[in-house]
């Protein structure tokens, strides 16, 4: 009887965890889409393909998988040259000091689920940790 109860309880916990993760993933993705549209799509474009040799693409770019780098560039901007898909881009990207850690995590989630290989959200903790030791780029 007790064994049965523990079993059903653990089954319940697993399922509730999964659905919470799914829910968060959906939330992060939806919020991330909105923040991306407001703050990033001007240059990187709604389709993530960037613009000619002016602004680098996110779609198909390996750099988006480097989440600590993504977080730091979003928060502090970037001045140096970045090579994306074999092409150099050297226009400065402005800092976004107004973006909260949650919002940065949501954008990373959106970008990596839309144009990367992620299927679950990127937690705030990843961003918080990354922002502690950002280097100037």
């Amino acid at each position: 009887m007790i064994k049965k109860l523990i079993f059903s309880l653990s089954v319940f916990t697993i399922f509730s965890c999964q659905s919470e993760q799914e829910l968060k993933t959906e939330q992060y993705f939806a919020e991330g889409y909105q923040i991306y549209t407001m703050n990033c799509a001007n240059c990187h474009q709604a389709d993530g393909k960037g613009m000619a040799n002016l602004y680098p693409p996110l779609a198909g770019s390996k750099i988006i998988q480097d989440k600590p780098a993504m977080a730091c560039i979003m928060r502090y901007g970037m001045k140096s040259t970045i090579e994306v898909n074999g092409k150099p881009f050297n226009r400065p990207m402005p800092a976004n000091p107004k973006l909260q850690e949650l919002e940065i995590a949501e954008v990373i989630t959106y970008v990596n689920m839309k144009w990367g290989k992620d299927s679950i959200y990127t937690p705030i903790a990843t961003v918080t940790k990354a922002l502690i030791d950002c280097v100037e780029r």
Binding site: N42, C43, Q45, M51, A52, L54, Y55, R91, P92, P94
Partner: peptide, 16 residues
């Protein structure tokens, strides 16, 4: 202006 972070990228995309 070339370092414009707001509407210029959109304008240049459209002008293209």
């Amino acid at each position: 202006f070339t370092s414009c972070p707001t509407i210029c990228p959109v304008m240049k995309r459209q002008m293209l």
